[in-house]
Design a protein around this nucleic acid. Structure first.
Length: 586
RNA sequence: UGGGGAAUAGUGUAACGGUAGCACGACUGACUCUGGAUCAGUUAGUUCAGGUUCGAAUCCUGGUUCCCCAGCCA
């Protein structure tokens, strides 16, 4: 922790630029506002899977704790039994851990504080700051007024403390049906901030809670619960997203209401003051060509528009993991996008940059042919096999080398051959010589076609003097192709992914349509006739590789020794594809 | 129309009254046994109008635009 603390200054010793949240934390540390304590938290509601937007929050909160020598809590904000499930709790724990945030032994549940919250609610009633209201949901809305018109007081607003106490107790005992009564804060029905118009603190819900069982039938609302969850845990900086800015006055009001009549030494009538954290809001992450709201992601899953929460096209953490993302790539992305107070949309290209940057350094290279074209080396002995040495990772010499089998019949990529090549096409063509990576120079001598005129097989000759890939006479070739030996290759299925949506902003649709109208029909392409080099036979789920010249690939959990299955995480930067596109554009 | 926030290259983000910088993208070129990686370079910006100041992205005034709020969701 010490090192990272020192890391406030960059490696070169220059000041690291602090985002506005870190600036606040640094200032608080300087002024001693919290006596040198820093405590943050990530407070997900277990009603969905985590996505890349949550990763931004996790990295912010955990990063601050780590950098400033503080603590980081993982806390489930499980105050609504109707939406929350253990499945989500489990997935969130796994995802936060995978992302590398360490909460040590501080895994908490807001629902564990229900009794304390209940007692504070009783205290507010006694202080005349809360009342039981019999208005139903529709009436409550009517009484609330509108953005421009003030609300009006509930007819139940002036019940006596005794009556409120009795009614609230009976609510908690389960004497009333769902929705019959609420406990509300007595603030100001004419307040310009609607959140302050006597907000509901408790509602009646006869529903089994995933942790509390049937112990409660009244459940606290977010505004009432959240500040106390932070307070109880000693959170110093309660970091949340922009839409809660309007709720901050209420966050503060509730804690101040409890603290009224309390003192620092506990001498007053209500005892010792409770901790009052500072809420700070930042802008949530938006990414081009994807959606980030839980509601929309849930819809994609429920309507089977994707294969599930962990579909590799999803921006969920589990989807990205299955796609082949590394936590490091995601962390670095979060570092680059920064933190601010205004809505912005980050280009997916930046995420892909971070991905490639990490994968380039860490992925073992391997050869695979996605769309095979058979090549016969006519002058190579029919029963000969050579083991050629290949480098596992040019970016990491310690990764060593491996042997790749070479024989007379090979597969190369269909797109690496053109019968009538345009000027800028450097790869194989009739009469042209190219290099097979780590193997030999070959020259195309004959093209075999089927009845429709499709190229189905190539005949070539090889130059035995170029073994290993270098010509002793110093002659050069303009292209190096990847290949696999037909006899030794393993068959594989490869799933290619593209953006899930065709539009930068999927919500940019015509009247009457919704974001599903922007779904990309070509976001998944399954190739079943692929060949990979034999070294891959042992690959395990989630192992990451670079298929040379093609991109980064990851073993899908569906993969079995019999049917190897890979996901394309992201392609390599492809200069040739761009040259081609420009050619088409002209 | 009430209240709360916010505006810096195409995108994301710095500059805290003193030369508007960085990253991604795009485009050149060098190098290369991955048309990858790497390296060098080019491109392009302070929402607008006033004011204060020797000096304004930064301070002040006014305008414009965008986001959030009327769940017994979080």
């Amino acid at each position: 922790m010490k090192d990272e603390n020192d890391g406030l200054a960059g490696a070169e010793g220059e000041e690291r630029k602090l985002d506005f949240v870190r600036q606040i934390v640094a200032d608080d540390l300087k002024t001693g506002k919290w006596n040198g304590v820093v405590c943050t938290r990530f407070p997900p509601e277990p009603n969905g899977y985590l996505h890349i937007g949550h990763a931004k929050s996790i990295n912010l909160n955990y990063g601050i704790a780590a950098e400033f020598g503080g603590k980081f809590n993982l806390r489930f904000d499980d105050t609504n039994p109707e939406k929350e499930e253990q499945e989500y709790v489990d997935s969130i724990i796994a995802d936060v851990r995978w992302l590398g945030a360490d909460w040590q032994d501080r895994l908490f549940y807001g629902s564990d504080y229900f009794q304390q919250m209940y007692e504070w609610a009783v205290e507010l009633i006694k202080k005349g700051k809360a009342y039981v209201c019999d208005l139903n949901a529709d009436e409550t809305r009517e009484y609330r007024g509108t953005l421009t018109r003030p609300g009006k007081d509930s007819p139940y607003r002036n019940r006596s403390v005794e009556e409120n106490l009795e009614l609230f107790e009976r609510m908690a005992k389960g004497e009333f049906p769902d929705g019959a009564k609420t406990l509300r804060a007595r603030i100001d029905m004419a307040h310009p901030n609607l959140n302050m118009r006597d907000p509901i603190m408790y509602r009646i819900v006869h529903e089994r809670h995933h942790r509390q069982g049937d112990r409660w039938c009244i459940y606290p609302m977010y505004d009432w619960a959240h500040g106390f969850e932070d307070s109880i845990e000693g959170i110093t900086h309660s970091i949340c997203t922009l839409e809660f800015e309007n709720h901050r006055p209420l966050y503060d009001w509730f804690i101040d209401a409890v603290n009224e009549g309390r003192t620092d030494d506990g001498s007053g009538p209500w005892g010792r003051k409770i901790h009052h954290p500072q809420q700070i809001e930042f802008a949530r992450l938006n990414l081009t060509y994807t959606v980030m709201s839980k509601r929309k992601l849930l819809r994609l899953v429920k309507e089977r528009l994707v294969r599930g929460w962990d579909d590799p096209r999803m921006p969920t953490i589990c989807g990205m993991r299955r796609r082949g993302f590394s936590p490091e790539a995601i962390r670095n992305f979060c570092k680059l996008i920064g933190v601010n107070k205004f809505n912005s949309t980050v280009e997916i290209a930046l995420l892909e940059h971070c991905l490639r940057e990490d994968l380039n350094k860490t992925s073992a290279r391997v050869m695979a042919v996605l769309r095979p074209l058979k090549v016969v080396i006519d002058n190579y002995p029919a029963d000969q096999v050579e083991e050629l040495e290949a480098i596992n990772n040019p970016e990491d010499p310690s990764a060593g080398t491996r042997k790749v089998p070479f024989s007379r019949e090979l597969y190369i990529e269909q797109e690496d051959f053109m019968e009538e090549p345009p000027k800028k096409f450097f790869r194989l063509a009739p009469g042209r010589e190219v290099r097979l990576r780590y193997a030999y120079f070959i020259t195309c001598t004959d093209v075999i076609k089927d009845a429709e005129g499709n190229v189905v097989e190539l005949h070539c000759t090889y130059d035995p003097a170029t073994r290993g890939g270098d010509a002793p006479d110093g002659r050069k070739v303009k292209a190096t192709l990847h290949w696999v030996s037909a006899r030794h290759a393993r068959k594989a299925e490869v799933r290619l992914y593209d953006n899930l949506f065709t539009k930068e902003n999927p919500d940019d649709v015509e009247e009457g349509q919704d974001f599903t109208a922007s779904l990309n029909p070509d976001s998944l392409e399954i190739l079943t006739d692929c060949y990979v080099e034999p070294a891959l036979a042992e690959a395990k789920a989630l192992d990451r590789f670079q298929f040379e010249r093609l991109g980064y690939f990851c073993v899908d959990p569906d993969s079995t020794p019999g049917t190897l299955t890979f996901n394309r995480t992201v392609g390599l930067r492809d200069t040739w594809a761009r040259v081609q596109q420009k050619g088409e554009a002209v």
